[in-house]
Simulated scan of single mutants.
Amino acid sequence: MLTDMHIAVLGGDARQLEIIRKLTELDAKLYLIGFEQLAQSFTGAVKEKLEDVDFSIMDAVILPVPGTSLEGEIETIFSSEKVILTEQILNKTPSYCKIYSGISNSYLDHITNLSKRTLVQLFERDDVAIYNSIPTVEGTIMMAIQNTDITIHNSSIAVLGLGRVGMSVARTFALLGAKVKVGARKSAHLARITEMGLVPFHFNDLKNEVSDLDICINTVPHMILNAGIIANMPTNTLIIDLASKPGGTDFRYAEKRGIKALLAPGLPGIVAPKTAGQILANVLSQLLADDLEKRKEISK
């Protein structure tokens, strides 16, 4: 139980609703900022304006999955008002207050470092990333079907990267009958691709490996599909970029060549927001319970 915990929830999408539901069930006291247009109510949660919240009593601050923009603005689909997180706000919180976000950026890193608050990036955790790969794969399949005129079965697909998402994507498309090859850089990843019964290739050979593709799925958050690589793709290739913004694709050049390239980060929140929210809620509730228990032990 999270009785006596005070938690500020700042903005977000439908995933945050599952987090709010779970934490209020565990008896936490929640302050919802950026939710004034939300018709739904939760026992134990109150809607507040940012300037009216007493951050000095907060045990935790929960941000949306994307965190903040580079200007500190927080995504708020349930509000028309801007919510901006600043160093000054964090300085008002107790020293033990933790900031929870899906991912981070230079701005969020900077203000949490200046305020000496702990930032927890949930998507850096293996459990969250692996659970989230399930709705990500389903969303990728949906996009592939919607944006091609061929079956996945017997199509030629390259998956770039064998991280937690890349592995799930490659395995699932192979199970659907696609001819899947997987690009990686580490020798251990190339060995794992072989063990999975798929075709491995090194990123050094990427230019040659894209010449016969129907679909290219990128999971690498760096510019890997540059103009030189895209120039060697058939014009009917579909690129699905799952990497976090801005992705790893030269979208300008892809459009110039007439190649459809789709940036699709955050698929879990789009195709299965309830499941994606429950994944985050379960992990968050355990982390918060651990924090509460540690503080109780210290205070004894």
Rank of each mutant, 00 (worst) to 15 (best):
residue 221 P to S: 05
residue 222 H to G: 02
residue 235 T to A: 11
residue 171 R to H: 07
residue 247 G to S: 07
residue 109 D to A: 07
residue 36 E to G: 03
residue 242 L to I: 15
residue 16 Q to P: 04
residue 221 P to C: 05
residue 97 C to M: 11
residue 2 L to W: 03
residue 101 S to V: 04
residue 83 V to D: 01
residue 241 D to I: 06
residue 240 I to K: 07
residue 97 C to D: 11
residue 80 S to G: 14
residue 42 F to S: 10
residue 242 L to Q: 01
residue 71 E to K: 15
residue 48 E to T: 10
residue 38 L to W: 06
residue 110 H to A: 11
residue 63 L to K: 04
residue 166 G to W: 13
residue 116 K to V: 00
residue 210 V to E: 13
residue 112 T to L: 08
residue 170 A to I: 00
residue 164 R to C: 01
residue 77 I to D: 01
residue 154 N to A: 09
residue 253 Y to T: 02
residue 274 K to E: 15
residue 139 G to K: 07
residue 184 A to D: 03
residue 20 I to Y: 07
residue 41 S to M: 09
residue 155 S to M: 10
residue 73 E to C: 01
residue 235 T to Y: 03
residue 248 G to M: 03
residue 295 R to K: 09
residue 194 T to D: 01
residue 231 A to I: 08
residue 274 K to T: 15
residue 27 D to L: 15
residue 44 G to T: 13
residue 288 L to E: 04
residue 164 R to D: 01
residue 287 L to G: 06
residue 239 I to C: 00
residue 160 L to T: 01
residue 274 K to P: 06
residue 240 I to C: 05
residue 20 I to R: 14
residue 7 I to H: 02
residue 39 A to C: 01
residue 247 G to W: 08
residue 199 V to I: 14
residue 69 S to H: 08
residue 240 I to R: 06
residue 139 G to M: 08
residue 289 A to W: 09
residue 207 K to R: 07
residue 299 S to C: 05
residue 287 L to M: 13
residue 216 C to Q: 07
residue 146 Q to K: 14
residue 70 L to P: 05
residue 2 L to Q: 01
residue 159 V to S: 12
residue 255 E to F: 03
residue 202 H to W: 08
residue 186 K to E: 07
residue 90 L to G: 05
residue 12 G to T: 00
residue 76 T to G: 12
residue 268 P to A: 04
residue 47 K to D: 03
residue 201 F to E: 00
residue 281 A to R: 07
residue 43 T to H: 02
residue 151 T to P: 07
residue 227 A to Y: 10
residue 7 I to F: 05
residue 22 K to L: 13
residue 299 S to A: 14
residue 47 K to V: 02
residue 230 I to M: 08
residue 145 I to T: 12
residue 27 D to A: 15
residue 280 L to P: 09
residue 286 Q to F: 13
residue 258 G to F: 06
residue 12 G to K: 06
residue 78 F to R: 10
residue 235 T to R: 11
residue 76 T to F: 12
residue 248 G to D: 02
residue 118 T to E: 15
residue 284 L to R: 05
residue 297 E to N: 14
residue 157 I to K: 09
residue 177 G to T: 13
residue 99 I to F: 03
residue 232 N to K: 13
residue 156 S to M: 06
residue 250 D to V: 04
residue 10 L to R: 01
residue 299 S to T: 08
residue 23 L to P: 10
residue 28 A to L: 10
residue 116 K to M: 10
residue 63 L to R: 03
residue 144 A to P: 01
residue 14 A to W: 12
residue 93 T to A: 14
residue 115 S to A: 15
residue 256 K to P: 02
residue 267 L to T: 10
residue 224 I to P: 06
residue 157 I to Y: 00
residue 16 Q to E: 11
residue 275 T to H: 09
residue 149 D to W: 02
residue 95 S to E: 10
residue 168 S to A: 15
residue 63 L to G: 00
residue 108 L to D: 04
residue 176 L to G: 00
residue 94 P to A: 13
residue 5 M to R: 11
residue 70 L to W: 03
residue 93 T to G: 10
residue 11 G to C: 03
residue 144 A to Q: 02
residue 155 S to G: 12
residue 251 F to W: 06
residue 124 E to K: 15
residue 140 T to L: 03
residue 60 A to Q: 09
residue 86 T to L: 02
residue 69 S to Q: 09
residue 218 N to S: 14
residue 43 T to F: 02
residue 299 S to N: 11
residue 19 I to E: 12
residue 60 A to T: 14
residue 23 L to A: 02
residue 266 G to R: 13
residue 165 V to K: 01
residue 151 T to L: 14
residue 239 I to R: 04
residue 83 V to K: 10
